[in-house]
Design a protein around this nucleic acid. Structure first.
Lengths: 140, 140
DNA sequence: GTGAGTGCAAACGATTTGCACGGTG
DNA sequence: CACCGTGCAAATCGTTTGCACTCAC
């Protein structure tokens, strides 16, 4: 288990109970989780952090680059405490998501071919298409 | 101007007025647009398509792969009629988005390093980081 | 003609906001 | 002990849904 308190202070955020709980939850859930799932997880564990606060916390944490964010569609903002850098596949029909490992393992694993007016920290790839299940069903 | 009617029929969708209007709007706006912007654009042009319908239409069109979707954050689902395949950069602080050209130009321009149980049609890269403006402001 | 698609309004659910209180540094 | 961050509830905003009507095929 990593020292979250230090990690937080490093980016200039106070190590508060809510933040630590959220980070712990994400680390333990170990996948892509919506803010809501984090909230439920913590609630069911008797360590409830109010919904609104969870949203605030994940927002702040991802803004500071502590968490990885993946937008998998409307109302599907997923967060993760990523140990291993990886990418995602999203089915355009059923919206299923699965992880796609990243060979590089480093962050950013890719850089654009041209110069951009920004400091790039991550390159997240979203593969889109149709999962096998949906493909069989409609032969589209 | 491409023949949208044919394009629609090709994927098994009827060429209705709403759909054609939305496609036209996206082609003319030529960037990443939210469903809402499309709606406003069409309204301001006296060719109003009801909000709800715009959402439905862009949903259907992207589900059939006619439109390109980019999720740039909560409540920031962007659509485009992409002539040229390209990627995006999103600033983690101010959420600014800009295009990043794709050298390959083909779709998908990348394939995962492992086998996945799906048919991959696109690989969309989201570069995340801090834009120069935000970077100067907080030196984070 | 007939089913797919629209138009509208109302429901929904995720996310944000404002303000008084509490805990961290 | 000063602020930053929380907690809570209400507001907001994007998006979805249900149903009667219409139009493309």
């Amino acid at each position: 288990m990593k020292d979250f308190s230090t990690a937080l202070r490093e980016v200039g955020l106070k190590a508060t109970k809510s933040r630590l709980s959220v980070l712990e939850a994400l680390a333990e859930m170990g996948g892509h989780c919506s803010a809501d799932e984090v909230h439920q997880y913590l609630t069911g564990r008797g360590q409830a952090v109010p919904r609104g606060t969870v949203f605030k916390v994940v927002g702040d944490l991802s803004e500071q680059g502590v968490l990885m964010v993946t937008d998998a569609g409307p109302g599907r903002t997923l967060y993760e405490y990523a140990e291993e850098w990886h990418h995602h596949f999203v089915c355009r029909i059923c919206k299923t998501i699965f992880d796609v490992p990243c060979v590089e393992g480093r962050k950013p694993c890719l850089l654009p071919d041209v110069e951009v007016p920004a400091v790039i920290e991550e390159a997240q790839i979203i593969f889109r298409g149709v999962c096998n299940e949906c493909h069989e069903e409609q032969g589209s």
